[in-house]
Simulated scan of single mutants.
Amino acid sequence: MKVCAIEIKSNKIIFVVLEKDSDNQITESTGKVKTIVLDDDHNHSQVIDCIETIHSHFNSLEIDKIVILSRSSKGQFSSSGISFKLEGFIQAYKNKPVEFVSPKTLSAFYKKNTLGIAAQFSYQSEASKLAYYILNS
Rank of each mutant, 00 (worst) to 15 (best):
Met1Pro: 04
Met1Tyr: 07
Lys2Thr: 09
Lys2Met: 00
Val3Phe: 06
Cys4Asp: 02
Cys4Gln: 05
Ala5Glu: 02
Ala5His: 00
Ile6Tyr: 05
Ile6Pro: 01
Ile8Tyr: 00
Lys9Met: 11
Lys9Tyr: 12
Asn11His: 12
Ile14Lys: 08
Ile14Cys: 08
Ile14Thr: 10
Ile14Asn: 04
Phe15Glu: 01
Val16Cys: 03
Val17Glu: 00
Glu19Met: 04
Glu19Cys: 10
Lys20Glu: 04
Lys20Asn: 04
Asp21Glu: 10
Ser22Met: 11
Ser22Gln: 15
Asp23Arg: 15
Asn24Val: 15
Asn24Pro: 04
Ile26Tyr: 04
Ile26Met: 05
Thr27Val: 14
Ser29Leu: 15
Thr30Cys: 02
Thr30Tyr: 03
Gly31Cys: 02
Gly31Gln: 05
Lys32Cys: 06
Lys32Pro: 06
Lys32Asn: 10
Val33Ala: 00
Val33Gly: 01
Lys34Cys: 05
Lys34Leu: 06
Ile36Pro: 02
Ile36Cys: 00
Ile36Asn: 04
Ile36Ser: 02
Asp39Glu: 14
Asp39Lys: 10
Asp40Cys: 09
Asp41Arg: 10
His42Gly: 11
Asn43Thr: 09
Asn43Lys: 08
His44Met: 14
His44Phe: 15
Ser45His: 07
Val47Ala: 07
Val47His: 03
Cys50Ser: 06
Cys50Leu: 00
Glu52Phe: 05
Ser56Arg: 14
Ser56Leu: 06
Asn59Thr: 03
Ile63Phe: 00
Asp64Trp: 00
Asp64Met: 02
Lys65Cys: 12
Ile66Val: 10
Val67Asp: 02
Ser70Ala: 13
Ser73Tyr: 15
Lys74Ala: 13
Gly75Tyr: 05
Gln76Leu: 14
Phe77Ala: 10
Phe77Ser: 09
Ser78Ala: 15
Ser78Tyr: 15
Ser79Lys: 03
Ser80Arg: 04
Gly81Gln: 12
Ile82His: 06
Phe84Gly: 04
Leu86Asp: 04
Leu86Ser: 07
Gly88Ala: 10
Gly88Asp: 03
Phe89Ala: 05
Phe89Trp: 01
Ile90Pro: 01
Gln91Asp: 09
Ala92Glu: 07
Ala92Asn: 14
Ala92Leu: 12
Tyr93Val: 03
Tyr93Pro: 00
Tyr93Asn: 01
Tyr93Thr: 01
Tyr93Gln: 03
Lys94Val: 06
Asn95Ser: 12
Asn95Pro: 00
Asn95Thr: 01
Pro97Leu: 07
Pro97Phe: 01
Val98Asn: 03
Phe100Lys: 14
Phe100Asn: 13
Val101Arg: 14
Ser102Arg: 11
Pro103Ser: 08
Thr105Gln: 14
Ser107Phe: 15
Ala108Glu: 14
Ala108Gly: 12
Phe109Leu: 07
Tyr110Lys: 08
Lys111Ser: 13
Thr114Arg: 11
Leu115Val: 09
Gly116Leu: 07
Gly116Val: 09
Ala119Asp: 06
Gln120Ser: 14
Gln120Cys: 13
Phe121Pro: 02
Gln124Glu: 09
Ser128Arg: 02
Ser128Met: 04
Lys129Glu: 14
Leu130Ser: 07
Leu130Asp: 05
Ala131Gly: 14
Ala131Trp: 06
Tyr132Ser: 06
Tyr132Gln: 12
Leu135Gln: 10
Asn136Tyr: 06
Asn136Asp: 11
Ser137Asn: 13
Ser137Leu: 09
Ser137Glu: 11
